[in-house]
Design a protein around this nucleic acid. Structure first.
Lengths: 145, 145
DNA sequence: AGGCATTACTTCACATGTTAGACAATTTTG
DNA sequence: CAAAATTGTCTAACATGTGAAGTAATGCCT
């Protein structure tokens, strides 16, 4: 079949390469996150909230974490039920809800963040600092191209 | 919070950069695939089968497409119900099932493959051939690092 | 041959991705 | 100011991701 279509093999397919690279990378983080009962996406939300000075509304979290509304809605419900975040209706615009880290969430963040950074450093060490920078740069350019 | 932990921002996070880059890329393919009633994953399976000379068993498809068993199991059930693929128990080892493209599947592949290649060429043109090669190379190295 | 671990695949349970639509609050417009 | 359009969020429905358990066929070992 390939002889008729010249479709590139999976090896040269950029979407597949991105998928495999990300999977290979996340495999190194997931066990640590799982040990804290966190999924990758839940951790992204907590990270975004921890990095913000003020409470964020749902749309701002969606932009920061690259999660879509429906996913985020379920994730926030989950985190709220575990008392890791709080949700309150915004006073100025009652369509918005204002989300912040609860004390338990901040505590969890303080435990997980250093472990995450440690893994990241190991990756940097084994992959190489320069290649890491180069890769980040190419990825950003692809996104904007 | 960031001042205590020095957690890198989402901008410098490699997992997020990979996610954003892939999403930005797939956004250009998905509408075309959707117009043929195909998801990205279903297309990966059909591509793998079309590229093979002989029928593949489920494990081989999983390796080729980077899909996990449970996902693949559901996807194959879907494609079989749409008569795009056929499944038969392997005669030598009855634990295996042998999957091949059905005629309708081959026909669909012949329609979709050129459209997919066309989009790929546009991406290559706008992102640049050299950077594409360099990116693929870095991604493969990351995967193996 | 009979027991036992292994293998290939499926099913289950739960979380997320994706699109479409619902809903209420807000803003725009005539 | 009231009708219409827009915005922010959520729900619904279906497909996939992930880990764990289930099932059946195979191979090994005595």
């Amino acid at each position: 079949m390939a002889e008729f279509t010249d479709l590139r093999g999976f090896d040269q397919s950029l979407p597949m390469a991105l998928l495999r690279a990300r999977e290979s990378l996340m495999r190194r983080f997931r066990p640590m996150l799982a040990s804290h009962e966190l999924t990758e996406q839940q951790w992204r939300v907590i990270r975004a909230l921890a990095g913000a000075e003020l409470p964020l509304d749902v749309g701002e979290i969606a932009d920061a974490t690259f999660l879509l509304g429906p996913s985020l809605s379920r994730i926030l419900a989950n985190l709220e039920s575990r008392k890791l975040v709080t949700r309150e209706p915004d006073q100025r615009d009652q369509r918005r809800s204002s989300v912040a880290l609860a004390p338990a969430g901040a505590e969890l963040f303080a435990k997980v963040a250093p472990e995450s950074e440690e893994i990241y450093r190991l990756v940097e060490k084994s992959f190489g600092d320069g290649r890491m920078t180069e890769l980040l740069s190419l990825l950003n350019e692809l996104e904007k191209s």
